[in-house]
Design a protein around this nucleic acid. Structure first.
Lengths: 205, 205
DNA sequence: GCGCTCACTGTCACTAAGTGTCATATGGGG
DNA sequence: CCCCATATGACACTTAGTGACAGTGAGCGC
């Protein structure tokens, strides 16, 4: 996580500007030149970093999901998902950079219904998170990463997380609701339990 | 299905050409002009039909998933998923146009790993299929379409179907394997049962 | 039949997304 | 200090995608 290739963190930095601009001006009204100017790099470099304009937000969307996957990697086999998240979610949401990224992501998710290009970026980000989750599930279920049941389980959990994220984001941004960490945690636990085909939610060792 | 707006079927016709060209020449080597020429329409109309080049294949990818969702709509409440698919899958795969679309879709799925643009089109198509599935699940579970558990169930099933489709497509095209209708049906039943959070797989009435 | 509307398409000029290529940093190892 | 590798900028270029308007043809009242 911390020693990731510096190209990745450069991409993430640009991605934050793109996410902000898409939120402020809308996707169509934001050009590659705008993103480059905001990030203080040349337009050419924007297209070296990202294969398309919508892909510019993928790192910001991905990083929240990925950080959550990284958290799950620390999930001890002796604990249930409820126990683990109850004690670790509070600490999880203190990192400042992470909170800012989460807000940016939430704002993107809230406008998904009118921005198809952003939805495709979101789905791509979820797909990468899913790939990451396969490792976590395989480890916890003591199975291989090529096991179909493992991949199915990771896909279901990712789909469940995606729905929770979309739902909460829309509620917060579009309906002005406020939600507590506990509510979010409860929602996530429910989603993971619903999506888990394999018996990984309770203590496995 | 049959009396869909004629704009939709025009889009589908163009989409078939796009899918063929992407398969034959690759995504990057196929231009909007190529698609227009193959479909016998002006380039301008291509961009009226589709918001982007990758979106050109969405109808072909969507139609197989959607037809399957339509099949599930006929699933009687007195039958289990195993019973229903065992007797209806054979008839399902006889429609000629459908078989051709399925082959086109399978070819797209087989090259997903090297064509990120096509993956995003595929994920978008799956998302639309998911929306359609929500109705089926809601009906069978006797719940509303806004029920979170219903949407969760539809998302899980869609994710499972997506994995099955990707897996089988890659096996058939990349590894030259041959699979029978029975094997595919068994795979799908397994996936649906795995993804179904709600008790909809067995007779509900 | 006649003319009207209206949704759809083609043409063409245009903007913006995205690439190829080369020159110039930047920065670590001998 | 120089060499080599990798990252970026500059700029010309191609292709994706839009705006504006004119033409076509099917439906419909008369």
């Amino acid at each position: 996580m911390t020693d990731e290739p510096r190209l990745e963190s450069a991409r993430l930095a640009v991605s934050r500007h793109a996410a902000r601009l898409f939120w402020e001006k809308g996707f169509d009204a934001t050009s590659g030149d705008d993103i480059a100017a905001a990030a203080g790099i040349s337009t050419r470099t924007v297209w070296r970093y990202f294969r398309s304009k919508e892909a510019c937000v993928e790192p910001v969307l991905k990083v929240s999901e990925l950080r959550f996957a990284a958290l799950l990697k620390q999930w001890p086999k002796t604990e249930s998902i409820d126990q683990f998240l109850a004690r670790s979610m509070a600490a999880f949401v203190t990192d400042d950079a992470m909170v800012r990224d989460s807000i940016a992501a939430v704002r993107i998710l809230a406008v998904l219904h009118r921005e198809p290009a952003l939805r495709s970026a979101w789905l791509m980000a979820c797909h990468e998170a899913e790939v990451e989750l396969v490792g976590v599930v395989a480890d916890r279920a003591s199975r291989g990463v090529d096991d179909f049941a493992v991949r199915l389980c990771a896909a279901s959990i990712t789909a469940a997380m995606r729905l929770v994220d979309e739902e909460i984001s829309s509620a917060v941004i579009n309906d002005g609701l406020r939600v507590s960490t506990e509510e979010v945690t409860a929602r996530i636990v429910l989603a993971i339990r619903a999506g888990a085909i394999l018996p990984i939610c309770d203590a496995v060792a």
